[in-house]
Design a binder for these strands. Structure first.
Lengths: 200, 200
DNA sequence: CCCGTAAGGGAACTACAGTTCCATTTATCC
DNA sequence: GGATAAATGGAACTGTAGTTCCCTTACGGG
């Protein structure tokens, strides 16, 4: 069995790249507007101005398409804050996350992508990589603070960053509580308090 | 427009109840095994030994069926721990949640139901109610501790309980980190430290 | 600049989820 | 326990998501 290269990898330039961009944009719009359950490759093809045969051949399933969109999004990560104060840095992070999840388009998109990750293994893997990238970026705030002596040695930097986001996602997904700026600030403060106590 | 009573509410006894039980059980099995995206009412009807017309008439969509399953699950809530020590109570809670999410069947079922809630408004509302019930039950551990003077006055009990679960769900959904007992214990300890510091 | 082939796209086909219609069963009221 | 209509269920129907076939376009190595 000669393993064939997947479609779109041998000649990735020109048209192929344009098709991918058009499809990913249409997919993002559709996910944000109608959610993952309603993601229909035929409609994506029409919206992107692309033959539906192409979409089915290159992506095949809604889950795989969501996974590709996530991989694309993971490459566009914003730089972390560097205020020199952990409390401020973590609060910035919390507000950034809350802001993303509150934004009408982005919030719905994230919900749809999490739904995708819960329905499909490829999408799950892509989502975990996406958050790994974001967490690694912000972990620097915590390692810097440990180096300055502002937090106990042995503190797990990524764990602290995750601890900031966790209550925000819990509010979004589990309880449905509205994501206010006050909630974001409290999430950052709680994570910091736990870190200071050596619990992370 | 005379608003008609929804199907299955006028004669809820006997066969109607048996049909509901059979369908909800089949739905739980299907969700745990194949996830929300693959939830197909025709297959549910067959698996439950029920006419597919009935399933479409009474539930109509996968989202509504998931919502009804969640409503059913919310009624079977387990009683909270009462060890007399907040740290122990919260650790018990964390281990219980982690245990549920680690269990092969329950873990997959919860993932599927969260996916459902992200795809459907009714399911979302039902999920939020489900967690509200669970959080209210365990909040007693915290209010007791505040009354004993073990935690600062003004601590929001439900917020503390949510803070215990949040990192576990974040690990399950966002990062994909395995849910160990150590992780559960740390989640409880971090929430407690934040509460002691007055951050909740 | 030219050829070989990777990639795209149009159109017909197929399978099956979801709907509709109506006959049958059976809870509930008296 | 009999009447009534609520609820179930079988069977035929329909729209459309996803597949297949094959021709066209254009990327990329020489």
């Amino acid at each position: 069995m000669t393993d064939t290269a997947p479609h779109g990898t041998v000649r990735p330039g020109g048209r192929t790249a344009r098709v991918r961009a058009a499809v990913l944009e249409a997919a993002g719009d559709a996910l944000a507007e109608h959610g993952f359950a309603a993601l229909d490759l035929t409609q994506i093809a029409r919206a992107g101005g692309v033959g539906k045969t192409t979409v089915y051949r290159r992506w095949g399933t809604p889950g795989a398409l969501a996974a590709d969109l996530l991989a694309d999004m993971a490459e566009q990560s914003l730089p972390r804050a560097r205020t020199g104060d952990v409390a401020t840095d973590l609060r910035e992070n919390a507000r950034l996350v809350a802001g993303s999840l509150t934004d009408p388009r982005q919030g719905r998109l994230f919900k749809a992508l999490i739904a995708a990750s819960l329905c499909n293994g490829q999408a799950a893997e892509a989502l975990h990589r996406f958050y790994a990238v974001r967490i690694d970026e912000w972990a620097g705030c915590v390692t810097d603070a440990v180096a300055r002596g502002d937090l106990p040695a042995g503190t797990d930097a990524r764990r602290v960053v995750a601890q900031v986001s966790a209550p925000l996602y819990y509010a979004l997904l589990n309880t449905g509580e509205p994501l206010t700026e006050e909630l974001a600030d409290r999430a950052a403060a709680a994570a910091l308090a736990a870190a200071r106590a050596g619990a992370l």
